[in-house]
Design a protein around this nucleic acid. Sequence first.
DNA 1: TCCCTTCGGGCTGTATACATTGCGCGGCGG
DNA 2: CCGCCGCGCAATGTATACAGCCCGAAGGGA
Lengths: 243, 243
Amino acid sequence: MPTEALTRRARRAARPGPGPTAAPGLSARDRAYQDLRHRILTGRLAPGTTLLETELAALLGLSRTPVREATIKLAEEGLIDIRPRHGITVRTVSPEDVRDILDVFSALEIRAVELVARRGLTDEELAHLQQMLSRMERLTAAGDIARWSDMDDDLHSTIVALCGNPRLLRTLGEYWGQQYRARLLILPLRPAPVQSDLEHRAMLAAIAARDVEAARRTHQQHRDRADAQQVELLRARLGSGAA
Amino acid sequence: MPTEALTRRARRAARPGPGPTAAPGLSARDRAYQDLRHRILTGRLAPGTTLLETELAALLGLSRTPVREATIKLAEEGLIDIRPRHGITVRTVSPEDVRDILDVFSALEIRAVELVARRGLTDEELAHLQQMLSRMERLTAAGDIARWSDMDDDLHSTIVALCGNPRLLRTLGEYWGQQYRARLLILPLRPAPVQSDLEHRAMLAAIAARDVEAARRTHQQHRDRADAQQVELLRARLGSGAA
DNA sequence: TCCCTTCGGGCTGTATACATTGCGCGGCGG
DNA sequence: CCGCCGCGCAATGTATACAGCCCGAAGGGA
């Protein structure tokens, strides 16, 4: 298992934070939130795990109040279920859930790309993105799917970050967290992403040309295909082995 | 079942009648949340209003704990700002915010319509929607913009409710709340929605024909035009008169 | 007069205490 | 042997207590 990639991703998983540092100065609620989110996304809190508020508080070394507030947030993000009297359960990722999540996620991402295309790219931004694409193509050729997947995440989030709509970014981040574990699960099953590389090139060209309609169309095609594949692989993964 | 959608909407938006006396079986947190949301959306808590946690708790007759949890939820929904030591402020609706909100909202709604088109409509659903359109056209002819606007909300939420993706519906609801006050504000400025009526007919035809691409295209056109108008009217409204 | 510093008050964030309520288990009856 | 009922407990939801921090005001010095 590429633990290094996991770590790298894990750091991104706790997105708004400054880094992996011990989080000084942060409120206990935020620490609880980030810590729990991090543990869930990296699998250190496995799907299906059930804990009581008291146990969570003990686990994190805090009182129930901030932990409770954090769990409410996580429940609204769809990462856990709160069942009163039955504890707090880490949600599993069923193919049906993932399909629903990706339906929303892709709609948002497509809109973000449209906004970026409308706005256009600076030369630096374009050069940077092209460089990322080249690196990804080399990784594809080398068969390093894990690192490619990392960069794919990076590429997408780098592009959408340029859209200039903070609410859109926020909601995108929520749904990103919901589909992240599914992505990890199917990672070893993914074929060489030759098609994705091509689609990325087309998308970037459309964005650079400030052709909103082409950007929408190419990105939608990309997502439709990639999402269907992801759901299919997940179904295979869950059908064959354990979660 | 035309009343069901109406009831749903009325419950979500405005019900100044009976008042907050009814508190059946709901938790204090939920009561606080719904009560506050209701007051904000209807304007009984005007934009810019600032209150302290203690004051809010006193206002609702609860202790700080559930009120605090409710405010966290409302802040995440974008209805209030929490500024530690400065109180909790009801957010104002600037045209820029509304543009950002509508960008997300329309992306989600378009996706929902695509899903409905893919799924198709039963005869009852189609008949019901057509009936709504006819009623709206009559209201347009009669110049009753207020009631038309109500039914427009109803129509849109009735359609998207058929999409079968609960997460999508949930997020749509959040953004609906954020744009609701802007809609109210510009209501008296709206011209006769002849164009919208036409677009609605086209949308419904595309959905009924299960033509996903046509549904997407017609709905996107509808939203692009209507959203631009809404932002423009809001700008006029805020530029001329009070906030 | 204006800025800097210090002090005090109070608001929030966290911990803890208390009440409520629903679940599970054990006993009883069929 | 199985199902149903009621009791006890414990987990949550809510209230309250406590402490830290920040902001602002006021006073002194340049």
